[in-house]
Design a protein around this nucleic acid. Sequence first.
DNA 1: AGACCTGTTGCGGGTTCCCGCACATGGTTT
DNA 2: AAACCATGTGCGGGAACCCGCAACAGGTCT
Lengths: 242, 242
Amino acid sequence: MRVLLVEDDQFHASYMEDVLAETLPEVTEIFHAVNGEEAEHEARALSIDAVVMDLRMSTRNGIEAARTLWTERPETRILFWSNYADEAYLRGIAAIVPEDSAYGYLLKTAPRDRLKLALRAVLVEGQIMVDREIHRLQRRAASPRNTLDDSEFAVLLDLALGLQDRTIAERRGMSLRTVQNRLLSLYEKLGVDAERDPDMPLNKRVRALNRALVTRTLNMETLETAQRDLDRWKAGQRKRAG
Amino acid sequence: MRVLLVEDDQFHASYMEDVLAETLPEVTEIFHAVNGEEAEHEARALSIDAVVMDLRMSTRNGIEAARTLWTERPETRILFWSNYADEAYLRGIAAIVPEDSAYGYLLKTAPRDRLKLALRAVLVEGQIMVDREIHRLQRRAASPRNTLDDSEFAVLLDLALGLQDRTIAERRGMSLRTVQNRLLSLYEKLGVDAERDPDMPLNKRVRALNRALVTRTLNMETLETAQRDLDRWKAGQRKRAG
DNA sequence: AGACCTGTTGCGGGTTCCCGCACATGGTTT
DNA sequence: AAACCATGTGCGGGAACCCGCAACAGGTCT
């Protein structure tokens, strides 16, 4: 098996290489990449079976790289290996994983045993595996019923990009009023309403983005990825109109 | 000399310990902490002379911990050691460093030699030292004259928290119109104006926050720290009013 | 001194946003 | 079938926001 290790931190990379060699005898070769762009090139050139992928990297993040990899070779098995348990990452992965693809999500703080287990389960056995810690942290402490559904999340992304209601409505194929209803429930679920204070009224739009970031519902990588999606959509719009 | 190493990543911690032992014979003891809170307690209990501090940590970030440390012992020498060259970190540090205190800011990707040099310069010699890479990245590629001055940055923080113009004016002691002028120049300097597109008008407020994040003028830690400052101010307000 | 630049402030008006109210649709419960 | 939700939509109004215009203060250059 040919494994690609995508990791920009040399210490973590050599640790992972170590564990890989120790755990998986079926691995014949290990290749390296230090960012998402390199990962895409190497996977293309080297016909890679399995990938261990860091998420936060400089020029191109792990989710975008994974999207490219899976587009070109949907059967690639990818273990995401990250420092952070952000909901944003899970949503990003869930949005791009192909039918029947194997993947896993493990925290870097996971003990060596659990890492070994995940490597075997995902890369060799083709299972799906998400670190227990991540699901635990996922349960938000705040009010109940605060899980965003997909359409709310889509509106949240557009809000975060700075789109106006009208544009969101157009892009998502909703009426203006419906977009505003989504915003209402976002304000509710993100806890913007709960902070209401007559002495200090808030700008709900900005506050919603703030809360989404602080609760790790969104993160920086999400914003960058969403921006690229928006640019693509905008290009499509222009073509359709012109 | 007693050194406190604040670092939540075990690999980086042991690497740093290694380099410390090799480089600084005047170090008699090395203590550890894995987050900002622990760092504050240990520094208080152990009378620490010098600190190596990671910035991004779980329960309390490096900047807040440093503020506490410096409040209690302004002569403490701190080398910040981070993965990221965010402008937000530099601003955060600049805002809390006491007169005549020694500090440094080094990237984790810095080669071992440069790390050694920085350790000696900051912790032993008491110099101020900022990684060249960081200043280089600081020069924004966009339009010229886009450096925020302090009052613009303050308004940006308030905007990011979701405050309304009126509240910002009150908090910063400006008139409403002056706040709006600051916002205008923020929109200009963050490139919100430059993106103007008649087909897709933006919500400038949200877009400004988005741009500030993407350009690393703000980051998550900034938001959290600013929120705590706001809470303190709000408590003060309440006392003054009641 | 006079011209000039920069930063602060008030006023006014057009736009966007927030959201209550009302109504329609479609699925579920009783 | 009737009652009942959840969701999508239109209308309307008050609040917040964006910003051009104009005035004024303080500092700098000629």
